[in-house]
Design a binder for these strands. Structure first.
Length: 851
RNA sequence: GCGGCUGUGGUGAAAUUGGUAGACACGCAGCGUUCAGGUCGCUGUGCUCGCAAGGGCGUGGGGGUUCGAGUCCCUUCAGCCGCACCA
């Protein structure tokens, strides 16, 4: 037994230095742009260089640099790194870059508290992240590093926004927007959770403000439909579909004869039009007060509207709240029945969806039913079960099924709801009072923020020329320094007078700069494009280079971005594709969402709970390989899992045992006079092994098969590690096996563990073969070694296992049946009963059915 | 309420197409090594009856299909996540 011990500190430092010095993980932009200032590896043989290889773009969501990285980052990058290594060793040119999402509120809030410039705090944090990533051994192409707060980056963020502006996809508009009184800024719809700011938790207010929007709604249909083309977790797609909220139906015009005004409404149930017995408008509808003017109920309408507008979004949107509303004193005409139906204002109708007004069909809509009950309005049934059974009296009958038919609907009686819907839409079309229509819940993306630490919006305002985009050759509009970051309801940039006052690009006259900055989600909506051509100073990217790398083959990140970032990035890609700037329709072909690491107590880690596990002391003590291996061994990586120090020690034990095996083999080789570290032959499987050696070689091939299947499958790396563990356990079980077989098995274990524990994998593989494991092709299982000459035949009687016997592989059905019937356990349980049937599954089992 | 997902030992979990339930790890118990151990190695470990050999029961509950069900179907319960007056 050797006196040496596994010393991750020394091993990891050595390999990290090799990878940094040799720029091992850097990849060039291939044929399109040779060189181009890119550091590239010294040319090897030209023949291999010319061989075209498939590309693989493996990407983890870029981190927001705040303080030190946490354990969740380590998990994210460990998963991505394993995939990147596997792709490299299976013949791909792998793009695996890293950058930083550097603008954002936390750095700015910190600046308000401490006076430290957000740039200083951010840059310091970025350095900590860079150090951490190197100490974790993540195989990153650092030559493409970017940070969104650098002018070299945000210059192009501004350029993209100007392209959107040119095409009418970026616009400025006054509207009721979400305002967070704590963060003193507006928020996108996506950033409001249950009426509260997703950052600070304060209740948001609605304010009428002029703001910048991106026209994401133009892409609602494509964002919805193209989800079918990408390999994402189903639940993420569902969340996006729900958020986009596509509803198919019709727009129907209701006419108010008294005031001669048309009111279109959106409905998903035009088939129930004959049952529309009243009409409801949202309190914010601009015509509400005008309609009520001069009616007896005018004062009541005023009171109701004022009351609703002061109510918080949270209170108003509670579903179990009783329905309230007020009669507007007017009527509209139901276009199919020609009846005059009363108009109401009620807060259950939302101004921001559809047209802000609805036709109410109380018999077949729960909300309308509740309202009709409360205000004693007529309820007319227009859909009935086909079999003539009555509908429930105390709830709305909501069905579109084929076992129902329209009633009380004139010429449409007897049709199913589906047929009725089509026929009524056709009729509305002919009459010119309606048409088929699709509605979306998705709103345009509000991107302006009244905050300092963000990308300036490249627009100036001129008295004569109005809104003028900054010419592209004057980009970037640099973020100026300011004295006071404190938000005061307008952007802190407004205080930078020298910066704000500028000249109009059109006329040279005095003009003022836009002082709002952009939502940081704009920055991160295109960073994956910039990685492809990160050092390009002439353009955001060369489309030819994008053609080479996009789309991202595997994206890895947290679920928290299921809607925001992932939807915005998809929108950007589609808009840029429409401009001819890139060729793909989707940014991320496959998505993997990792689960959270919970504290040892099973709760989400938080300072207040005191259950935070910090990576750096663990790395210090156990080494990066151990922590990485443990994190992947915790369970399926898409699942949440609680931290467990004992299990971490278990991962360390595995690596330590593997290292010890390699150390022993090196010692054995020394005794035998062959020095393995100068043997630079590729790893060879021993020829015709027997006995223990054969068992080891078989196990090694089984492990290859098992580990590989997880990479092409569901990324269940805990199973991969379990397979390597079994191989290592067997090496301890057969200590007397022939030297070549042991060496092969240990080197295979090292090769297979490399994507998870790269330093140890490289160390052990090199000590046994003299070769660099990352330059070796991924091992292929020898099919001949995956089957043994005999197998354990499971013998069942009536489905219960009664015996197991050895049977030769490839044995025929008759032979297996004979073996099973002769097995003592089977004979005992058959015991004279009639054998009705014998089921034989070759290579597996025999089931004897008796009565 | 609607939509999605998940229920397997003391714990995290595994189980190609329906074919040996519990691989691997943690924990626990025992043995050995060690001056010592938060070390290393080995053995055992679903529950239950039994000294043992050997039975019986077991994948949230109930039912079904099948020679055979953790896996498929129906039903029910529990938990997690998302959406939540979206017409």
């Amino acid at each position: 037994m050797s006196e040496q011990r596994y010393d991750p500190r020394e091993i990891e430092a050595r390999w990290q230095a090799v990878w940094a010095d040799e720029h091992t993980w850097e990849v060039s932009n291939g044929s399109q742009k040779e060189g181009g200032g890119m550091r590239s590896r010294p040319p090897t043989t030209t023949t291999t260089m010319r061989t075209p290889r498939d590309k693989a773009y493996v990407l983890e969501m870029l981190p927001y640099p705040s303080g030190e990285p946490h354990i969740g980052h380590l998990k994210n990058y460990t998963i991505g790194d394993a995939i990147a290594h596997f792709k490299r060793r299976t013949g791909h040119r792998v793009l695996h870059p890293m950058g930083f999402d550097a603008f954002g509120l936390p750095a700015e809030n910190n600046a308000i508290k401490t006076g430290v410039h957000p740039r200083a705090a951010t840059d310091e944090s970025i350095e900590q992240f860079q150090r951490a990533f190197r100490s974790w051994g993540i195989s990153i192409d650092w030559s493409r590093e970017l940070a969104t707060h650098e002018p070299e980056y945000y210059r192009w963020t501004q350029w993209i926004v100007l392209q959107l502006y040119k095409r009418g996809l970026a616009y400025r508009k006054e509207s009721a927007v979400n305002w967070c009184p704590h963060d003193q800024t507006v928020l996108a719809n996506e950033q409001v959770i249950d009426g509260r700011c997703e950052r600070c938790g304060h209740e948001v207010e609605l304010r009428q403000l002029e703001q910048w929007f991106l026209r994401i709604t133009d892409y609602a249909d494509r964002l919805h439909d193209d989800l079918d083309t990408i390999d994402w977790p189903e639940y993420v797609k569902t969340m996006q579909r729900n958020w986009i909220g596509r509803s198919v139906g019709a727009e129907v015009t209701f006419h108010c004869a008294e005031l001669r005004i048309d009111y279109p409404v959106f409905t998903t149930r035009p088939d129930t039009l004959f049952g529309a017995t009243f009409f409801v408008m949202a309190p914010e509808h601009p015509d509400v007060l005008r309609l009520a003017a001069g009616t007896p109920g005018e004062q009541a309408v005023h009171r109701y509207v004022n009351h609703t507008l002061t109510e918080s979004a949270e209170d108003r949107s509670s579903t179990d709240k009783p329905k309230t509303g007020v009669f507007l004193g007017r009527t509209v005409t139901n276009p199919v029945t020609a009846e005059e139906i009363p108009m109401y204002v009620a807060d259950y109708v939302l101004m921001e969806y559809g047209t802000g007004a609805i036709m109410a069909v109380p018999a077949h809509d729960e909300r309308d039913f509740a309202f009709a009950r409360a205000y004693d309005l007529p309820i007319r049934q227009v859909v009935a079960p086909k079999d003539g059974s009555p509908i429930p009296a105390d709830e709305a009958y909501v069905t579109k099924d084929d076992d129902a038919v329209l009633v009380n609907s004139g010429e449409f009686d007897g049709l199913t709801p589906k047929e009725g819907l089509e026929r009524i839409i056709a009729w509305l079309d002919r009459e010119g009072i309606g048409h088929a229509s699709v509605n979306f819940r998705l709103r345009d993306w509000l991107v302006s923020r009244q905050r300092y630490w963000g990308c300036p919006i490249p627009i100036v305002y001129c008295d004569d020329h109005g809104m003028v985009p900054v010419p592209e050759d004057q980009l970037p509009v640099r973020l100026p320094d300011v004295e006071d970051y404190q938000p005061k309801g307008r952007s802190p940039l407004a205080t930078a007078e020298d910066w704000v006052n500028t000249t109009c690009p059109e006329c040279g006259g005095p003009a003022r700069r836009e002082t709002d900055t952009m939502d940081t989600f704009v920055d991160s909506s295109w960073y994956f494009l910039r990685y492809c051509d990160a050092r390009n100073d002439d353009a955001a990217w060369d489309p030819a280079v994008l053609r080479e790398w996009m789309g991202v083959d595997q994206y890895i990140g947290g679920v928290e971005h299921a809607i925001l970032h992932l939807l915005y990035a998809r929108f950007f890609v589609k808009a840029l594709a429409d401009m001819g700037l890139l060729d793909v329709q989707e940014p991320f072909d496959a998505l993997f969402t990792q689960g959270m690491i919970l504290g040892p107590d099973g709760h989400k880690m938080s300072k207040s709970r005191g259950n935070v596990i910090s990576p750096s002391p663990l790395i210090e003590h156990f080494g990066a390989d151990t922590v990485r291996t443990y994190i992947l061994n915790m369970g399926p990586p898409d699942q949440d899992a609680a931290w467990n120090d004992n299990a971490l020690a278990g991962a360390h034990r595995l690596l330590s045992r593997l290292w010890t095996l390699a150390d022993e083999i090196a010692a054995d080789a020394g005794r035998a006079g062959s020095n393995p570290s100068t043997d630079s032959e590729s790893l060879q499987q021993p020829v015709d092994p027997a006995g223990d050696a054969l068992a080891l070689v078989r196990k090694a091939n089984w492990a290859i098969d098992r580990v590989t299947s997880e990479f092409v499958g569901r990324f269940g790396f805990h199973n991969s590690i379990a397979a390597v563990t079994e191989l290592v356990n067997d090496l301890y079980r057969y200590p007397e096996a022939e030297f070549e077989a042991r060496k092969f098995a240990v080197a295979t274990a090292a090769s297979l563990i490399f994507p998870f524990a790269p330093h140890l994998g490289a160390e052990v593989f090199e000590s046994l073969t003299g070769r660099r494991v990352w330059e070796e092709p991924w091992p292929a299982a020898d099919a001949a070694m995956l089957v043994a000459e005999t197998f354990e035949l499971v013998c069942q009687v009536n489905g219960k296992v009664r015996d197991r016997v050895r049977a030769p592989s490839g044995a025929g059905r008759d032979e297996l049946e004979k073996l099973a019937l002769a097995a003592p356990g089977v004979m005992q349980h058959v015991d004279g009963q009639d054998v009705i049937k014998v089921v034989v599954v070759p290579e597996k089992l025999v089931n004897v059915v008796v009565r």
